[in-house]
């Protein structure tokens, strides 16, 4: 148990950030992280015996985010949260433009499908290759490629003001 708690203390912040990006909502991210860690705790002896447990934990995080978990629908109504519940608006004395871009990206990501969002997070935040992303999401590399393309096209439509992030001509397939 001490090992597990030590692991959670050391890695929970990084895992929480991924969970948030995968869900787009801090409540759902909290549920996802708790659910994932409970499942990991269930098999902790076997997981920790194999060495570094983080790949397994992250894999489960991705899978749970895609396959759904209990709280997803329950928390859906919380998307329209008040500003005090939106940590992306707090904590840093950013200028208005930075905050606006952050909100636009957040809202655009929220309008992608679970799988499209997961593909973007795994490819561009977790920095996984197409093959690794396909293995994590139980799909083929071609699916990852097409999902990435569709997700970026959708983001361009939803947030043309963020064209510098994912504008036309971006060679995403080249990675």
């Amino acid at each position: 148990m001490e090992d597990f708690e030590g692991f959670v203390r050391a890695r929970s912040t990084a895992l929480a950030r991924t969970a948030y990006l995968l869900t787009g909502d801090r409540h759902q991210a909290e549920d996802l992280l708790q659910d994932t860690l409970a499942r990991v705790a269930e098999r902790w002896t076997a997981v920790s015996r194999g060495g570094d447990p983080e790949p397994y934990v992250r894999r489960m995080l991705y899978t749970r985010a895609i396959d759904g978990w209990r709280g997803r629908q329950r928390r859906a109504a919380l998307d329209t949260t008040e500003a005090r519940q939106r940590p992306e608006l707090r904590g840093r004395p950013d200028d208005a433009d930075t905050v606006t871009r952050r909100l636009v990206l957040r809202d655009a990501l929220a309008r992608l499908t679970q799988r499209q969002r997961a593909v973007l997070v795994l490819r561009f935040y977790e920095d996984l290759t197409e093959v690794q992303t396909a293995e994590a999401l139980h799909c083929s590399p071609n699916t990852v490629k097409s999902q990435t393309r569709h997700a970026l096209e959708r983001l361009r439509q939803l947030a043309p003001e963020l064209a510098d992030l994912f504008g036309p001509g971006t060679p995403v397939e080249a990675r």
Binding site: R17, Y20, G91, Y125
Partner: peptide, 9 residues
């Protein structure tokens, strides 16, 4: 986007 979220999650 995710920088300040972790303490809340």
């Amino acid at each position: 986007l995710s920088a300040d979220v972790a303490p809340y999650v």
